[in-house]
């Protein structure tokens, strides 16, 4: 069976820490970290990069367009 692997890149300076991407992710890849960005928000981070399936749900629901998603078939 073809395996799919994804990767997520988050523009941390643009992120407002709304948490919608964390909720939308079906594979629990994203978390809101403890660090803050220049605006003082706890920005979203990739915690489990191995689990990412590249479904792009996080990208769709991000109101600020901070998320870029990549996907490959192995």
């Amino acid at each position: 069976m073809a395996k799919i692997k994804g990767a997520v890149v988050i523009d941390k300076d643009r992120c407002k820490g709304c948490d919608l991407c964390v909720v939308a992710c079906p594979a629990d890849v994203l978390i809101l970290g403890q660090e803050v960005n220049g605006k003082g928000y706890n920005y979203a981070q990739v915690a489990n990069s191995d689990e990412c399936i590249g479904c792009a749900n996080c990208g769709y629901v991000c109101p600020d367009g901070c998320i870029t998603v990549y996907k490959v078939k192995l």
């Binding site: 990767a7 792009a56 367009g65 901070c66 998320i67 998603v69 990549y70 490959v72």
Partner: peptide
């Protein structure tokens, strides 16, 4: 290795 322009599926 995944983060390449040809593999992009969603972005701003």
């Amino acid at each position: 290795e995944i983060i390449k322009p040809e593999n992009k599926v969603y972005g701003k």
